[in-house]
Write a protein that binds this DNA or RNA. Structure first.
Lengths: 207, 207
DNA sequence: ATAATTACATACCATTTGGTATGTTGTAAA
DNA sequence: TTTACAACATACCAAATGGTATGTAATTAT
């Protein structure tokens, strides 16, 4: 019969271990890039061994794929899609969230860029499967924005003449472009300058 | 006395060798990233040996620095700055060049992105000197656009109320953002969608 | 013409890398 | 309680990596 664990915490837990490895990998890859990180460094960060690693992932590439599917996708959802739903006017939500997550980020965080965008730029040309999975997350993001904009139209906050998919593409591209650009110039003045142009564009969508 | 070379072409030429290595490195790094490329692969492409390589560059990093300083900077000048000067209205020049170099590029080239942006995203967080040198090239680009816009104001094509540096930052960011975004979605429709928004923004600068 | 130097070639090396083979022990079903 | 397997740990390996030491021939200065 099925028994949920009792006594002390289990010392061996497949999913927990997987999560810890993915977290360590995320941090390492975020700062050094996928190709700049070794499996040894990742497991060193977790305190585990190669046995644990290769029990979860058959190759380094598989770890990368899992990271995109299981971590990055969720990150986009949590940071850029779900919060927008809290706003009655999705345009205000998008603007508020950009200001919160990018505009108010410290400079050393800005220099690290966007985990998703970093991988897109590094890996798209290197590995086909990587490219596909990253593209799926981008699409997921675009779809999320698209849906939010459609809600804005139904809400009466956005002109119904606006082509929501085109607008969503612009919005996502601007997020990633901004992230990428601020890596070289992690300056609040630069953010404000770009932010202003972004808001102007979004204003043209308003009903 | 100084004699320019005669007879056959010199078999040994420091600058020529350096150029060949830099060209091979550029191609390799463009497709695999800096960290994804080995010195062996670069010299294999040139047909030279390690002796030649390390006579020019003391480390792999030094090659990267030289690539930014001696190749990427010139690429930006040739592709994105000089051509604009041919147009009386710089805004038209910027738009025409974007359409020419990105809009009319084949899909497999679009998937490779921008050599400069690729390196920015990959290396800024990895190596401080790399970040600095890349930042200098970005600044060089921004300065070039800034100068062009100022000429547009003097020309009477651009409103003199426009803050040219802010506009230049927006323009350069949009180029790199577009390049980066099209890596995941190398689709002409997507280009047109973004291109339209870009042109709309530039229209707000016109006198 | 000769010597000195520079531009490269060759051979080699310590370390790191992704990956494997094999052991050991916690855990759950029978 | 035993059995069986799953979740790891340990030890090891071939290949690739960045880099060096040293040799040699082309070029330049004397």
């Amino acid at each position: 019969m099925m028994r949920t664990m009792s006594k002390a915490t289990k010392t061996r837990d497949l999913q927990r271990t997987r999560g810890e490895i993915l977290n360590a990998a995320f941090a390492e890859i975020f700062t050094n890039g996928f190709q700049g990180v070794s499996i040894d460094k990742i497991i060193a960060r977790t305190g585990m061994t190669k046995g644990a690693f290769f029990h979860q992932f058959s190759t380094k590439m598989e770890l990368g794929y899992a990271l995109v599917d299981e971590v990055l996708r969720d990150l986009i959802k949590t940071r850029w899609i779900d919060p927008i739903a809290e706003f009655e006017n999705p345009l205000d939500g998008i603007i508020a969230q950009m200001n919160k997550l990018i505009g108010k980020a410290p400079n050393d965080l800005l220099r690290m860029g966007c985990p998703l965008n970093n991988l897109v730029q590094e890996m798209t040309n290197v590995d086909e499967t990587f490219a596909q999975k990253l593209s799926e997350v981008i699409d997921y993001w675009i779809d999320g924005v698209d849906t939010a904009l459609k809600r804005g139209i139904a809400n009466g906050h956005i002109k119904d003449s606006i082509k929501t998919r085109d607008a969503a593409i612009y919005i996502v591209m601007f997020h990633e472009g901004m992230y990428g650009f601020l890596k070289t110039k992690p300056d609040h003045k630069v953010f404000l300058s770009l932010f202003k142009a972004f808001k102007q564009q979004l204003d043209t969508y308003r009903a």
